[in-house]
Amino acid sequence: MLDQENKAKGMKFRRAGDLMVPLDRYPHLPYWFTLRQAVVAMLSSEVDVRGRKSLPRVVLVFDEEYSLLGFVRRRDILRGLEPAVLANVDVGESGEVLEQQLARLFDDANYEGATTGIRERAEKAVRTVMQPIVATADCEDHMMKLVLKMVSHDLHLLPVLRDGSVVGVVRTVDIFEELAQYVL
């Protein structure tokens, strides 16, 4: 329907610049800020795009000169918060063995120690879990080009550049909603 209406109006697919969230409306942090501060950014920064509010899944990471260095996702933060001993846990083990190992580590009797450990690890800098920027989009990029980049790099978010500078981000949800209009 939408497709036919747009064709009738001589319109084209929307570009990255049309779909993106402007940079100053998306949560971001300097790289020396902590995981704890990244958690706050994710839980308290509602992103309001075209009247639709959502909590961010990703926080952008910048340096002193306000250059984009990378981003952290929820799972990066979770990884940062997990105890070092978990690295030795072989997740390939049978279910029973794995359960035994985890039960030993996270007994309720050890609640105090475990939570203290989480809080300590939350003071790590976000740069330690940050994902580098491996792909970007240009403002003029076709929507399908964004789909290609996201799928091939397994990304939820692409920085959008204009004249070589980051001006915003485009998220999977933005593209998903746009595409949905053609499908439904």
Partner: peptide, 15 residues
């Protein structure tokens, strides 16, 4: 601790 970041130079921003 900047030097241990995965990227040694970031993407400039505008505005």
């Amino acid at each position: 601790g900047r030097t241990s970041s995965p990227l040694h130079s970031g993407l400039a921003t505008q505005g």
